[in-house]
Design a protein around this nucleic acid. Structure first.
Lengths: 146, 146
DNA sequence: CAATAGGTGGGGGAAAGTGGGGAATTTTGC
DNA sequence: GCAAAATTCCCCACTTTCCCCCACCTATTG
């Protein structure tokens, strides 16, 4: 399972080191794509397959919302490769979407890695953490006991 | 079951000794994550599995509340490894969240361990203990009789 | 009071992250 | 079609962080 938060830098050549803890889970085959809330998502091959399946089911319903969502997810997807130092090269459009510059935060979220611009991540944190007890109680209503 | 309260120090290298009483219950596999009320929570593997399952179900619904909460819980979580001295290394983001510096208090709470900044813990105690009878009666109103 | 167990601290080797030179490949422009 | 430019990726070097090991200190126990 992917978890944890790591601050890394995109170097002048546009390369980003994947934390070694994550590399062990990711393997060599993975997908980089636009994520929700203006971050990037990196899915291990297996998880990606699972999602593709889901999206495939949805597309059968051929409603416009699903079509748009699928375009969003798949349109931006790129197969990732690691260099021998464990780094990926981020395509310009993806960097632009997530507003990535130099300092980024890599966050393990269960089945994927999210890549955030550091400032944006910290702003979100600052915004959400004061309300986390409220969030927690909503989660409890949804059936989670902590 | 985890119970009791221990004062320990985080050493200059950021390491925290887990009380040996707790180690016996924790085993070698556990998760450290942000808890409510600005403390850290350490869950034994079994407890964590239970929560993970719940979170995974919810993540499918992809509603924003769940997404934020999962980021909160997992984003910062780390798999615990104890060194040969029975210590964990606390990542900076977790220390920052709980305001941990040097003196901390480890509290056994049923199925998890909470880690508090010592000052904060004592303040909370000082604040809550005089009112504990009131708290108890509030609990009773909620249907929780002891 | 010795002996043991638990907690604290630091040295040092190994691993991870960072950055840059430069070769190989692809893309671009004439 | 070919040279120039850009891109990608391998390699090496440096720095930082992690984690093993050992040593010491303190409290508890026989």
């Amino acid at each position: 399972m992917l978890a944890g938060e790591y601050s890394h830098n995109i170097d002048p050549k546009g390369r980003l080191t994947i934390p070694s803890k994550f590399r062990k889970v990711l393997g060599t085959e993975f997908m980089v794509t636009k994520g929700l809330d203006k971050c990037l998502s990196i899915y291990p091959e297996s998880e990606w397959k699972r999602m593709e399946e889901k999206l495939r089911e949805m597309s059968l319903t051929t409603n416009q919302v699903a079509r748009k969502f699928i375009r969003f997810m798949l349109g931006s997807a790129v197969e990732g490769g690691l260099d021998k130092q464990g780094r990926i090269l981020l395509p310009q459009p993806l960097k632009a979407y997530a507003g990535l510059d130099k300092e980024v935060v890599l966050v393990g979220v269960m089945d994927r890695i999210e890549v955030w611009d550091k400032d944006k991540w910290e702003q979100n944190q600052a915004h959400d953490e004061p309300n986390i007890e409220l969030l927690a109680s909503e989660m409890e209503e949804m059936g989670l006991s902590i």
